[in-house]
């Protein structure tokens, strides 16, 4: 890209009206327990992969709900699927299936 000596900053706001809700709708339809997350962060605190990388399931779920596809795609692949978050979640969110569904949505919509 040419360097013009300046760059245009993207709007920092989440524009929920224009956000891409495809993954969110897909996951909500097939694993509705994504709706009952209370963002307590237990999953992230216990995450095995979280020791090595900044995989953060709580944020990932938020990214999905807010339509942040780039963030979602970047993080989801790091999950080892070990299931610790499933055991730790106080709400009974089916975390592993949420992750599987997000992966499927990414594939389905070729994101």
């Amino acid at each position: 890209m040419k360097n013009f000596g300046y760059s245009i900053n993207k709007d920092r706001q989440i524009d929920l009206d224009k956000s891409d809700q495809r993954i969110a709708l897909f996951v909500k339809q097939h694993e509705p327990s994504i709706n009952i997350c209370i963002s307590c962060g237990t999953c992230t605190a216990t995450c095995s992969a979280g020791n090595y990388t900044n995989l953060n399931l709580r944020k990932l779920i938020l990214s999905v709900k807010r339509g942040d596809i780039i963030e979602t795609k970047a993080e989801i692949s790091k999950c080892m699927f070990c299931g610790k978050c499933l055991l730790a979640c106080p709400r009974g969110v089916n975390t592993r299936n949420v992750i599987l569904k997000i992966n499927q949505a990414i594939e389905k919509f070729s994101l």
């Binding site: 307590c40 962060g41 237990t42």
Partner: peptide, 22 residues
Amino acid sequence: RGRLSEACENMDGSIMVKVEDT
């Protein structure tokens, strides 16, 4: 703001907590 996932004991008896600062 974060719910503890687990706590461990250190050699000196102090407690290490694991939490996400959400």
